[in-house]
């Protein structure tokens, strides 16, 4: 999925801000996100902070999307717990799952893919795991289903 395709989808779904820490896959979107102006790109210093910023944006009536890697998901646990379960805000995450494809093929000892789904389940956060060769349409459908639910959720990008 190209940056322009990503932006078109985010605009169609009404996202106003992208709170973003890149990984090697989603990093390809950086220049397009930075140049877009709308949705506005916010660059936090770590993932827990990203979720806090998104909470404030939602309280103020904006509609943010948080993009991070699974390692950052692990880091951000308490922020996620607070925003989703204490504040009950409809946080939407896109999570890049580092090493997912190699892990599935038994070619990686990286433990990130082993823990991503169990962590989300532990935090009671619904998620959609996209197929490795996901299309723009499947990505948008997954995001849209979370947005229209009015509840928090995540889309996992296999990497």
């Amino acid at each position: 999925m190209t940056g322009p395709e990503l932006l078109a989808g985010l605009r169609r779904l009404g996202f106003t801000h992208v709170v973003y820490l890149p990984d090697s896959e989603t990093g390809r979107w950086d220049q397009d996100l930075a140049a877009a102006g709308s949705p506005r790109l916010i660059r936090p210093t770590r993932e827990g902070e990203a979720i806090g910023i998104a909470a404030g944006l939602m309280l103020g009536g904006a509609k943010p999307l948080v993009v991070l890697q699974c390692t950052g998901l692990f880091e951000s646990g308490d922020a996620l717990r607070n925003v989703v379960h204490d504040l009950k805000l409809p946080l939407v995450l896109v999570v890049g799952v580092r090493g997912y494809l190699a892990f599935r093929q038994g070619q990686s000892q990286d433990t990130c893919p082993a823990f991503t789904e169990p962590i989300l389940q532990a935090w009671r956060l619904p998620y959609h795991l996209l197929q490795p060769a996901f299309t723009r349409e499947s990505w948008e459908q997954a995001l849209e289903s979370i947005v229209t639910s009015g509840k928090a959720g995540a889309v996992l990008l296999p990497e």
């Binding site: 827990g48 806090g52 910023i53 944006l57 717990r81």
Partner: peptide, 23 residues
């Protein structure tokens, strides 16, 4: 006034930035 509790400790500044950007 928004008394941020229950909170995630340390997230007050982040939440405040988001709110300031939205409003």
């Amino acid at each position: 006034d928004f008394c941020y509790m229950p909170s995630s400790m340390g997230q007050g500044t982040a939440l405040a930035l988001g709110l300031a950007l939205a409003q």
